[in-house]
Amino acid sequence: MRTPIGYSYCSLRLSRVLWRGRGAILLSYEPHGCVLPEFRPTQFAMFWVPGLEAIPLAPIYASRDRIDFLVRLRGSTTKSIIEDPPRRAGVIGPMGRSFTPSARSMLLVAGGTGVASLIPLAAWAAREGTRVVLVYGARTESELAPIEQYLGDDVELVVATDDGSKGLRGTAVDVARAAGLEDFDIIVAAGPPAMICGVYKLVGSQGLLNKFYASLETIVRCGMGFCGSCMLPCTSSLLCREGPVFPGTVLGCWVEEECSLA
């Protein structure tokens, strides 16, 4: 039930395990006796695993009657999800702000589970007529989730693996560099901090930081912004409210903490 307070809780039941990769799994859930709230691009959810805890996850796909999550090994809860996907679960959301900029062209640079956040954005933007290039990097083929199903025909997907086992050999950052950043109105990165740092440095060195956005991760507890856990370093921005996508120009402290710029 959609609540007057903007957030809602909905019970989920596992409908399919869509993919198992190295240290990752792609799960499809359906609402159970409730209607899923609308998730707009880059909004995320708290995914509750009964008996364990709730973790912040951006749905890789969400509609009224289906929600898919890409889960990567991080700690004990994600380990349990991967080993034994919960048949029953719950979802709280939507959290954060949607990021839906109008642009002629958009370069999305994704690594790891970061791709989950960018796929709804890519699909949405392509439908809006934006030229979308999605760079999806991983260490090796077995880590690449089958994301094509979510993208539609109009997103240009460029896959890269560190070992060259699939797509281009190299990192997502390498591919982004080669893609010619100046051709894009908007550049968005989502993934491991090192990757985001790489793109940050790249766009910064080319003087393109004003085009750059990053989908970040912080510690998320309440997910609604009141507990303060998701505060971005030395800003007053709450990831759960103004995020998860932030413009490059406010990332200073985050970069300070996460990236070695030396």
Binding site: P4, A54, R221, C227
Partner: peptide, 14 residues
């Protein structure tokens, strides 16, 4: 603090 979820939205309250 407690394990998550630490906040659950309900129809008429939190």
């Amino acid at each position: 603090g407690y394990p998550t979820p630490i906040a659950v939205p309900l129809p008429y309250g939190l």
